[in-house]
Write a protein that binds this DNA or RNA. Structure first.
Lengths: 191, 191
DNA sequence: GTCTATATGGCGATAGAC
DNA sequence: GTCTATCGCCATATAGAC
């Protein structure tokens, strides 16, 4: 692996953990066993390195979902699989997820546009299409958003929810959450 | 207003904007027109100041919701009002909301317990009670969580959702979101 | 491409006068 | 309770040798 790629991979993990201003170039250099100057050879400054790292971590998420859209599942099965995969991606790639959370927190309009169009657009369209199939007379954007929002909340807020009354250990099992979210949405369509 | 309170109020705004390591004591001192040393007279160190600021911003949110629980609304009306108020609090007190987001991002187990028990417990119990009333045979914790998750997602992800296909201007109107979330949940109960 | 050495400045925190 | 002055450290970034 090239030094540049090694730097990027470490930067993803460390920026996700510590945030932009929380990670120093010294710490990053230590983590990749290079000098600070060597890093500055590959990237013009800290900000450019950060943006490159974000882009790099976003680059390989699509194929997981494309399998679902290309399958011969029924619409309901596709919804369940999509939500299940979304949960799995969020749980398995915590660094990607935390970087996303940080981006949302900053909410920089320019970067939001970049994220929406460069990363999420195609998957979101496919999800909206599925929602239209399942509930033709409802607002597809609202429903797609609701599906993602429900799944995301259970993952992001799990550390907090564990400390609130009524929590059960099954609430952290991906398949259980996926089934709950899917059922909630499908029930709502029937009414 | 005392210097201590002035410092705390400014700290809430600035920590919400810049995060813990993004805000320096010098910047905070400049904002409140005091010297750095004066701040250290009121707080032992930066971390203690941060925790005090978080606690301070959490202290006055309960009464908004207690009005609802004490009203003579029907259960369905209470659900709608709760979600509507949740949205309003998040939109009107951006600093509180951003501090919350940062806390969730850090996900420090000890602080999650503090937040859950010291801040959210009583409101969450009342919401679960309402859910039990509306859908007695379902998991109240899951439903309460779903309600909060749906509302939160629409607010937090609005800057991103605006850039995705199918977005309409009505999607940012609080009453519209509240109605959508309430309807989704109530429909799901009926099925 | 990577190093050592260093410039320059901001950081958290403290000492001591008023 | 607030100030000025300062300590010691670590930050980003650069210069120049190899």
């Amino acid at each position: 692996m090239s030094s540049k790629e090694k730097i990027l991979r470490a930067a993803i993990v460390l920026f996700a953990q510590k945030g932009y201003s929380g990670l120093s170039m010294r710490q990053l250099a230590l983590a990749v066993d290079l000098s600070v100057a060597a890093i500055y050879h590959h990237f013009p400054d800290k900000n450019a390195l950060y943006l490159d790292a974000v882009r790099f971590s976003f680059s390989d998420k699509e194929q997981v979902f494309d399998q679902i859209w290309n399958s011969d599942f029924t619409a309901k099965e596709k919804l369940h699989s999509f939500i299940r995969s979304l949960i799995d991606v969020m749980l398995n790639d915590r660094d990607f997820h935390r970087l996303m959370q940080r981006e949302i927190l900053e909410a920089d309009p320019e970067r939001m546009q970049l994220l929406a169009q460069g990363v999420f657009n195609s998957q979101f369209c496919l999800l909206m299409q599925l929602m239209t199939e399942l509930a033709p007379e409802q607002d597809a954007h609202l429903l797609a958003t609701s599906a993602i929002g429900l799944a995301k909340y259970y993952i992001e807020y799990q550390p907090l929810l564990k400390n609130l009354p009524g929590w059960k250990s099954e609430h952290e099992i991906p398949e259980f959450i996926a089934t709950h979210v899917t059922t909630l949405l499908l029930n709502s369509f029937q009414a």
